[in-house]
Design a protein around this nucleic acid. Structure first.
Lengths: 332, 332
DNA sequence: CTGAAAGCGCTAACAG
DNA sequence: CTGTTAGCGCTTTCAG
């Protein structure tokens, strides 16, 4: 592979001059520029990014830590992050944690300051001390909700309020036996959505739900939603509405209901969370909380970018808007 | 940030010794090792990956180029690649191209040899000359089908055969008016699946389909499938079965059919391609070609790994197994 | 077993 | 406007 020096020799100038034209710096004598460009083309020179970064003290990468790319919500989010990062000449390095604490902590620890210029993380099981034990000076932003008490920038939506609106919608439909699917004490998002649920119930003067109505889910895949729905329908008094903590749970729940001859929305209304692409086209289409994912991704990238450029102002908490998309799964 | 030198000074030894214990090399005098470890802990030393790689001539990254992470198939695939890459201490850098030639070519050109140790690419619109114009010595493997005549390792499934099996299944069901959705001359996969379709029809002695039965799709999202199905159903003689070139097209098509009072599978049977997680839980669940995605990802990573380690044997073409998952969308 | 010193490819002072 | 030179932090001969 050709180096700067090779090009310089071939062009009969110094490396500095070559470096100058490569980087578009200062003014280079036209004739030299021409010679350099020829040499550049002749050698097929490509800068060694590693060496350049070592010198400049930046790496050109940011890390994105998510539970699983196979969850459409995170796939969509990751796509948005990659797009937003490009605006700052960043490439995105993606790590998966499966929402487990150990991989999350390990990823955090591996974020050497010379590996990435910043990181966007969506932890699900991380504890506060995982941060303090391994302090790093890589600018980080938390994407999505969390129950961590750490001085780190955060961008997300108001989960409590979103859950309240979702449940309120169900109440407005006249449903009174409302269950949730996705309870998981180790997930910050779940805790907040559960709080919103309780608050909506209380606001409407509805009685506290029986314990069986708070259905847990270890993971947030279709299968978990289906299993939860099966348990819900086996209850002595099954719910007439279910608020699922993500769309996959909801789709799994809808199918489980259908398999048991239970019509959605007539017998049971279902609301999801995330508004993944599929939810607009499923049968029935899914009513769901729709966060502005592109805005979420963009805000996160902008925040790390500011921090990476030396912004040391107070910790920020950015709230991104969301809407409730009403569709067939609650239209009856 | 602490450097090797800092640690060495604190421990009262040379950088070599510190480097040795950090890398687990050779035998270090126990006492020195102890001192070094203490200094390591005290300073919170983390190696500068950039510098190390500059020296070692490897970067620790591989690039993965896909159309869109928001397409569940690629989300699942990318997840598999990240997992497989970890086994070789690689982090994965993901680039999106939206299936467009310019971003694809640009990504290819940016693959400086010092940026990544290898690349796994799923091009959709790239031309042969985009490769030859920008030769790079980064080991690459093509993931998925393509119609490129380039000497590059390839891993994929037998698309022609898969399509043939899918269509054959429809024929076995007694369907005779079989359409396809997803035709797109610039996509290698589409061309191959179309060939399989024609071949299955011919094998069964069925007449060549009317031109309207080959429904094009610019993109492979739900919306495109829905639009194609709408057109198909408006035909004077609508099909009684549709083979869609991916699951999202299929789900979009199913919904469009339902919206027009057309029952799947009774009035029209639908087969998809990719077996994304959703297809097992949709209503109706979707019959689809199921490639072994984990194997696909793993084979691709292994291949770049071998090449990155100097394997210069002949260009390989790895075929990964697939199955036909028969579900409700064709069970009638 | 360990220290000194060279140098990976590049950029940024600093002189000219 | 351009050449020289000193490192960025690390690994690695090469001597001890």
């Amino acid at each position: 592979m050709a180096t700067l020096k090779d090009v310089a020799e071939l062009a009969g100038v110094s490396v500095k001059t070559v470096s100058n034209v490569v980087n578009g710096y200062s003014f280079v004598k036209p004739e030299n520029e021409r010679k350099v460009r020829e040499a550049l083309a002749a050698t097929g020179y490509k800068p060694n990014v590693g060496a350049r970064n070592l010198r400049r003290g930046r790496t050109g990468f940011i890390a994105l830590m998510v539970p699983e790319l196979s969850i459409p919500y995170f796939g969509e989010l990751a796509g948005g992050v990659i797009t937003a990062a490009h605006a700052h000449d960043w490439s995105v390095l993606i790590e998966q944690t499966h929402g487990l604490r150990d991989p999350e902590a390990a990823t955090l620890a591996s974020l050497g300051p010379h590996m990435v210029d910043g990181a966007i993380i969506s932890p699900e099981a991380l504890h506060t001390q995982d941060f303090t034990r391994n302090p790093t000076d890589v600018p980080m932003v938390l994407l999505g909700e969390h129950s961590l008490d750490v001085p780190i920038d955060h961008v997300g939506i108001d989960n409590v309020q979103a859950a309240r609106i979702a449940v309120r919608h169900l109440i407005d439909l006249g449903r009174t036996r409302i269950a949730v699917v996705g309870q998981n004490p180790s997930r910050g998002t779940a805790t907040q959505r559960l709080a919103g649920y309780h608050s909506a119930l209380a606001d409407a003067g509805l009685p506290a739900p029986p314990p069986g109505y708070i259905a847990p889910a270890a993971h947030y895949h279709h299968r978990d939603g289906a299993e939860a729905m099966a348990r819900l329908l086996a209850l002595p008094e099954p719910p007439d509405a279910v608020f699922c903590f993500n769309d996959m749970l909801a789709h799994g729940a809808v199918r489980a209901a259908a398999e048991r001859g239970c019509n959605v929305p007539r017998d049971i209304a279902v609301v999801g969370f995330d508004n993944t692409e599929h939810s607009k086209y499923s049968l029935p289409s899914l009513t769901t909380i729709a966060p502005d994912k592109a805005a979420l991704a963009k805000a996160a990238v902008e925040l790390v970018h500011q921090r990476a450029n030396g912004d040391v102002s107070a910790v920020r908490d950015v709230q991104i808007p969301f809407t409730l998309q009403v569709r067939e799964s609650t239209s009856g």
